Lab assay of single mutants.
Amino acid sequence: AQASVVANQLIPINTRLTLVMMRSEVVTPVGIPAEDIPALVSMQVNRAVPLGTTLMPDMVKGYA
C-alpha cells in the first residue's frame, strides 16, 4: 500500500516543514506520497495541521 505523509506534531499555520514534523504512514484517504517528504522540507503549510493529520496537496503552499 502507498504510504502518505502524516503530521508528527501540531504544525502551526505558515510553518516551514522540517523532517521531524513528518512521518510516513499507510492511511485512507491517501495524501501526499511519502517519497515526496524530501521535497516538502522548507515548504509552508497554509493551515494548522493537527498531530496525526494526513497532509493533502492543498495544505502545502507551492506543492500542488
Rank of each mutant, 00 (worst) to 15 (best):
A1E: 15
A1Q: 14
A1I: 13
A1G: 14
A1R: 03
A1C: 06
A1S: 09
A1P: 11
A1L: 12
A1F: 13
Q2K: 07
Q2A: 10
Q2H: 07
Q2T: 14
Q2R: 05
Q2P: 15
Q2N: 12
A3H: 09
A3F: 14
A3N: 07
A3S: 11
A3G: 12
A3L: 13
S4V: 02
S4T: 04
S4E: 00
S4M: 02
V5F: 02
V5W: 02
V5L: 03
V5M: 02
V5D: 01
V5I: 14
V5S: 04
V5K: 00
V5N: 02
V6R: 03
V6K: 04
V6I: 14
V6T: 06
V6A: 03
A7H: 01
A7C: 03
A7R: 01
A7Q: 00
A7W: 02
A7G: 03
A7F: 02
A7T: 13
N8P: 02
N8T: 08
N8S: 08
N8R: 08
N8I: 06
N8Y: 04
Q9E: 11
Q9V: 13
Q9N: 08
Q9S: 14
Q9D: 10
Q9I: 13
Q9F: 15
Q9H: 08
L10S: 11
L10T: 12
L10W: 09
L10H: 09
L10E: 11
L10C: 09
I11D: 01
I11M: 05
I11K: 00
I11P: 00
I11F: 02
I11C: 03
I11V: 07
P12L: 13
P12M: 09
P12C: 06
P12T: 06
I13K: 15
I13M: 15
I13F: 13
I13C: 15
I13Q: 12
I13L: 07
I13E: 08
I13N: 08
I13T: 12
I13S: 10
I13A: 11
I13V: 13
N14R: 09
N14W: 10
N14A: 14
T15E: 09
T15F: 09
T15S: 11
T15H: 07
T15G: 06
T15D: 05
R16L: 13
R16F: 10
R16V: 15
R16T: 15
R16H: 14
L17I: 13
L17Y: 01
L17T: 00
L17N: 00
L17H: 00
L17D: 01
L17M: 10
T18M: 12
T18C: 04
T18A: 08
T18H: 08
T18Q: 09
L19G: 04
L19N: 05
L19C: 06
L19I: 06
L19V: 05
L19S: 06
L19M: 14
L19P: 06
L19D: 04
V20P: 06
V20N: 11
V20R: 14
V20T: 13
V20E: 06
V20K: 11
M21V: 03
M21T: 03
M21S: 04
M21G: 03
M21A: 04
M21E: 00
M21W: 02
M21R: 03
M22L: 13
M22Y: 02
M22G: 00
M22S: 00
R23Q: 04
R23G: 05
R23C: 04
R23F: 04
R23A: 05
R23H: 05
R23L: 04
S24M: 07
S24F: 11
S24T: 15
S24E: 15
S24V: 11
S24R: 11
E25L: 07
E25A: 11
E25P: 01
E25I: 04
E25Q: 11
E25T: 07
E25C: 05
V26H: 11
V26Y: 08
V26K: 05
V26D: 10
V26G: 04
V27I: 07
V27W: 03
V27M: 09
V27T: 12
T28V: 07
T28H: 13
T28C: 08
T28A: 13
T28G: 05
P29D: 05
P29R: 04
P29E: 06
V30F: 14
V30T: 09
V30D: 08
V30H: 11
V30S: 09
V30K: 06
G31V: 02
G31K: 00
G31T: 01
G31W: 02
G31Q: 02
G31Y: 01
G31P: 01
G31I: 02
G31M: 02
I32P: 01
I32V: 10
I32W: 03
I32K: 00
I32S: 00
P33Q: 07
P33I: 12
P33D: 05
P33C: 07
P33V: 15
P33Y: 11
P33T: 08
P33E: 06
A34M: 11
A34W: 08
A34N: 05
A34V: 11
A34G: 13
A34D: 11
A34R: 05
E35T: 12
E35W: 08
E35Q: 13
E35F: 12
E35I: 09
D36Y: 12
D36V: 12
D36C: 07
D36P: 01
D36R: 15
D36F: 10
D36M: 12
I37C: 04
I37P: 00
I37M: 12
I37A: 07
I37L: 13
I37K: 09
I37E: 03
I37W: 03
P38K: 13
P38H: 15
P38S: 12
A39L: 15
A39F: 13
A39I: 15
A39N: 15
A39M: 15
A39W: 14
A39H: 14
L40A: 01
V41E: 10
V41P: 02
V41W: 11
V41C: 06
V41R: 08
V41A: 08
V41T: 11
V41Y: 12
V41I: 14
V41L: 11
V41N: 05
V41D: 04
S42G: 10
S42I: 03
S42R: 07
S42L: 11
M43N: 05
M43R: 13
M43E: 07
M43A: 12
M43D: 04
M43L: 14
M43S: 07
Q44I: 15
Q44F: 13
Q44M: 15
Q44E: 14
Q44N: 07
Q44S: 15
Q44A: 15
V45L: 08
V45G: 02
V45C: 04
V45K: 00
V45E: 01
V45F: 01
V45D: 01
N46A: 09
N46Q: 08
R47V: 10
R47K: 11
R47T: 13
R47E: 07
R47L: 09
R47H: 07
R47A: 13
R47F: 07
R47D: 10
A48R: 07
A48G: 08
A48I: 13
A48H: 13
V49G: 01
V49H: 02
V49E: 01
V49W: 02
V49P: 01
V49T: 05
P50Y: 12
P50A: 11
P50F: 13
P50R: 11
P50T: 12
P50E: 11
P50K: 07
P50Q: 10
L51S: 12
L51N: 14
L51Q: 14
L51W: 15
L51D: 15
G52D: 11
G52T: 02
G52A: 08
G52Q: 03
G52S: 12
T53Y: 12
T53H: 15
T53E: 09
T53M: 15
T53W: 15
T54S: 04
T54K: 04
T54N: 02
T54L: 04
T54V: 09
T54E: 02
T54W: 02
T54H: 03
T54A: 11
L55Y: 01
L55C: 02
L55H: 00
L55D: 01
L55E: 00
L55S: 00
L55K: 01
L55Q: 01
L55T: 01
M56E: 06
M56H: 09
M56D: 05
M56P: 02
M56I: 11
M56A: 06
P57S: 09
P57I: 05
P57R: 13
P57K: 07
P57M: 06
P57L: 04
P57Q: 09
D58L: 14
D58Y: 13
D58V: 07
D58Q: 12
D58G: 13
D58W: 14
M59K: 01
M59Y: 09
M59E: 03
V60L: 08
V60P: 00
V60K: 01
V60F: 06
V60S: 01
V60N: 02
V60H: 00
V60G: 00
V60Y: 01
V60T: 02
K61L: 13
K61V: 15
K61C: 06
K61A: 12
K61E: 14
K61P: 11
K61F: 11
K61N: 09
G62S: 07
G62W: 06
G62N: 08
G62Y: 06
G62C: 06
G62F: 12
Y63M: 04
Y63F: 06
Y63E: 03
Y63I: 04
A64R: 10
A64K: 14
